[in-house]
Amino acid sequence: MSIRSLKENIVEDTFTADKETGGRSLMQSAALRFYRNKAAMLSLIILCLLILSAIFGPYLIPFGYEDPDWAAFRSPPSWDSGHYFGTDQNGRDLLARTLYGTRISLLVALVATVVSVVIGVSYGAVAGYIGGSIDQAMMRFVDIMYALPYILFVILLMVIFGRNVFLLFAAIGALEWLTMARIVRGQTLSIKEREFIEAARATGLSTSAIIFKHIVPNLTGPVVIYAALTIPEIIATESFLSYLGFGVQEPLTSLGTLIADGAGVMEVLPWLLFFPAGVLVTLLISLLFVGDGLRDAFDAKELKR
């Protein structure tokens, strides 16, 4: 939420610069620039590794994420026992739980981001394309929503949806679409003046067809960047909610839940904090670098430096 205006600035600045270069060539040169950005590329590789291990890792280790090892409660990391990350207070293998937690955290972020993208793009594109007083009214509503103390509403939603974590993150996504809608509306306003839209209109296509077939596909750049910047924010929100005790249900876990649990025992069972926190920090940093890399890659002004 607080990062909102920051993101908006970044994304809007990026896309006001060089529309005249046209969609395709912009994409290609951006890909090339991204490829040359060492930090972003390294982050992308780390990110892919993390995602792959979250997907396949749990199948490769001998311990389940919910089964206790009655012989090893609170045992520190050790090669001999096979608990490379140690075990928790229920004798459960921390490596298995970390892998599983990463998976849940990523899934949750994905759900929330998809929801925010779908709502934001539709809302922004419709407002921008139709324009006039409808646009005014729709954007006024967005302004109003901005004034709500967002995190308080998330907590209230949590109190009600307490049980279903995916429903909740869909709800967070539904609160996170505001900035997306603003950006998309701005882009739409400029795209709709272009010739190919005029042409589409001349052939008698319906308004909805023009919006979803011709305008939305041209919004990919800003949408991707914004989505990349939203994911770490959702993951951070998830860990915040876990700390407040609104995390996912046992025996499932998430990075946030693991860290919130580990933070209380950092002096006595440090491994319970160290490993999941390491993964979370790595994940967030690489997501941020990838997001920054994307932004820089699309930003023509950046070349002038």
Binding site: E66, G245, Q249, E250, P251
Partner: peptide
């Protein structure tokens, strides 16, 4: 919601597993 309650529920769920009981943990405030 409480650390100790959670821990005990997880432990008892896994004690019941071998006798043929499948537990769904249900945590509320």
């Amino acid at each position: 919601t409480n650390d100790n309650h959670k821990r005990i529920a997880v432990a008892i769920a896994s004690m019941w597993k071998p006798i043929g009981v499948q537990v769904e943990l249900y945590n509320t405030e």
